[in-house]
Amino acid sequence: MRHELRGIFVLGLAAAAAGCSSLQSTSDTAKAAAVEPAPDAGFIAHPERQTKRADLPFQKVWIKPGFDKSGYRELVVAPVNTQYMMEMDWLHNLSSAAWVSDVKSDIAELGHYFHDQVVKAFKEDPKHRFKVIERAGQHKEPALRLELALIEIDPSMPVLHALSWAGPIGTGSAAGAVNQRRAAFEGRLRDLRTGEVVATFADRDMADVGPLDLTRLTWYGPAKGIMDRWAEQFVQIANRKPSEVVTDPTAFTVRPF
């Protein structure tokens, strides 16, 4: 967004001076303790069917009983749905209409970025598990359609100040969201021929980034890094053997302050 956001490093310094604690781990157990699942947004029709699976990195998963992914060779990645992000509390507390417009533009761009990173990850998969096709009519073999929705990205407190945030500090769900460096999505996997949903999944994740990372001083902070990780995990899950466990690939650091 606007270049003046880089000037908010002073606020970051003040936050750092106040001190922060950190927690590092390579395990999904630590993630479970540090990052609660996002509330169901509505993109998934039957979220109550989802559970946490120890062999997958996402917080909520449902797979149709008897579903066998081995018979599918092609994949369509649908445009990422961003309509649920328009309902984020903090967005409606911005006092400047111009900033709201800029944030909405950023949200659309983030949807395109997430889509393109998923496509890129599958195309660059050395195992070539799926051939990515652009449109449903192009498929020549059994195909799946991956449908994703971004439902949440938490902004940092310094950036909210720079965006003329009108919300009271310390109260409400919007205040509780800031400085968490989190993003969340919901997803569906659909048989392209029958239209049947064969799997659903959802995750909220947190990135490892310090308060003075001047390369990411935008309201969406490290969200693109989280999306990159999700894209990699989609490929890992596509390639996994029945007994293989897929977890978050790297340690992360939680620095609440």
Results as ranks from 00 to 15, higher is better:
Ile44Trp: 04
Ala45Gln: 12
Ala45Glu: 10
Ala45Phe: 02
Arg49Gln: 12
Arg49Thr: 08
Thr51Cys: 07
Thr51Asn: 05
Thr51His: 11
Lys52Gly: 03
Arg53Gln: 11
Ala54Asn: 12
Phe58Ile: 08
Phe58His: 08
Val61Ile: 10
Trp62Cys: 06
Trp62Glu: 03
Pro65Met: 03
Pro65Gly: 09
Gly66Lys: 07
Gly66Glu: 01
Phe67Ser: 06
Phe67Leu: 03
Lys69Cys: 02
Lys69Pro: 05
Lys69Ile: 14
Lys69Phe: 05
Gly71Glu: 05
Gly71Ser: 09
Arg73Ala: 13
Arg73Glu: 07
Arg73Gln: 14
Glu74Ser: 02
Val76Gly: 01
Pro79Thr: 10
Thr82Met: 05
Tyr84Asn: 04
Tyr84Lys: 09
Met85Val: 07
Glu87Ala: 15
Trp90Ile: 08
His92Asp: 14
His92Phe: 04
Leu94Asp: 07
Leu94Met: 09
Ser96Tyr: 03
Ala97Lys: 13
Trp99Arg: 13
Trp99Gly: 00
Trp99Val: 15
Val100Met: 09
Lys104Tyr: 00
Lys104Pro: 00
Ser105Val: 01
Ser105Glu: 10
Ala108Cys: 00
Ala108Asn: 10
Glu109Asp: 15
Leu110Lys: 09
Tyr113Thr: 15
Tyr113Gln: 05
Asp116Leu: 08
Gln117Arg: 13
Val119Trp: 00
Lys120Cys: 02
Lys120His: 06
Lys120Phe: 07
Phe122Met: 10
Lys123Asn: 14
Asp125Ile: 04
Asp125Thr: 12
Pro126Asp: 02
Lys127Gly: 05
His128Met: 01
His128Phe: 00
Arg129Tyr: 02
Lys131Trp: 00
Val132Arg: 03
Val132Asp: 07
Val132Ile: 14
Ile133Thr: 11
Glu134Trp: 00
Glu134Val: 13
Glu134Gln: 14
Arg135Glu: 13
Gly137Glu: 14
Gly137Asn: 15
Gln138His: 13
Lys140His: 13
Lys140Leu: 13
Ala143Glu: 03
Ala143Ser: 06
Leu144Lys: 06
Glu147Asp: 15
Glu147Cys: 08
Leu148Cys: 04
Leu148Tyr: 05
Ala149Leu: 09
Leu150Gln: 11
Leu150Glu: 09
Ile151Met: 01
Ile151Trp: 01
Glu152Cys: 02
Asp154Val: 06
Ser156Gly: 08
Val159Lys: 00
Ser164Lys: 11
Gly167Leu: 05
Gly167Ile: 05
Pro168Arg: 11
Ile169Lys: 10
Ile169Met: 09
Gly170His: 08
Gly170Met: 07
Val178Gly: 03
Asn179Arg: 08
Asn179His: 12
Gln180Asn: 12
Gln180Ser: 08
